[in-house]
Measured scan of single mutants.
Amino acid sequence: MTYRVRIENADGEVVTIEISADELREKGLTLEELLPPNARIVEVEEVEP
């Protein structure tokens, strides 16, 4: 499974990243732990691999 994640950074700019569930598991991280300081998740969407 892959996630498309929209993130708002500290400057108010919204960027989109895609990350797979396998990648998260391998790194032992959650989506929140990948965020840079002062950023927030705006939207998470599951996409087909």
Results as ranks from 00 to 15, higher is better:
E43I: 07
L31K: 00
I19W: 04
V44D: 01
A39W: 15
E23Q: 05
V14L: 13
V5K: 00
E43A: 12
G12I: 01
E32Q: 12
E33A: 08
D11Y: 10
Y3A: 00
I7Q: 00
T2R: 11
V42Y: 04
V5C: 05
G28Y: 04
E46S: 09
K27T: 13
V47H: 06
N9W: 14
D11I: 07
E26F: 10
V14F: 13
V14T: 10
P36M: 04
L29D: 02
K27Q: 08
P36W: 05
N9G: 10
K27N: 09
E48K: 14
P36F: 03
V14A: 06
E26L: 13
L29T: 07
V42M: 09
E26K: 09
E23I: 09
L34C: 07
R4A: 03
K27A: 11
T2K: 12
R25N: 12
R25L: 11
P36G: 13
E32T: 09
A10L: 12
E23Y: 14
Y3D: 00
E48Q: 14
E8H: 04
E13N: 12
E46L: 15
V42F: 05
L34S: 07
G12V: 01
R4T: 02
E45R: 07
R25D: 07
I19Y: 06
E13A: 11
G28F: 04
I7C: 05
E45V: 13
G28I: 03
R4F: 07
R40P: 02
E13G: 11
E33S: 09
E8P: 00
M1Y: 11
E33W: 04
D11R: 09
A21D: 08
P36R: 02
I17W: 12
L34T: 04
G28K: 08
E43V: 07
V44I: 15
E45D: 05
I41Q: 02
V44E: 01
L29G: 07
P37Q: 08
E48P: 14
E33V: 03
R4K: 08
R6N: 03
E26C: 06
D11A: 10
R4E: 01
N9L: 15
E8Q: 12
E43S: 15
L24P: 01
N9M: 15
A10R: 08
E26I: 11
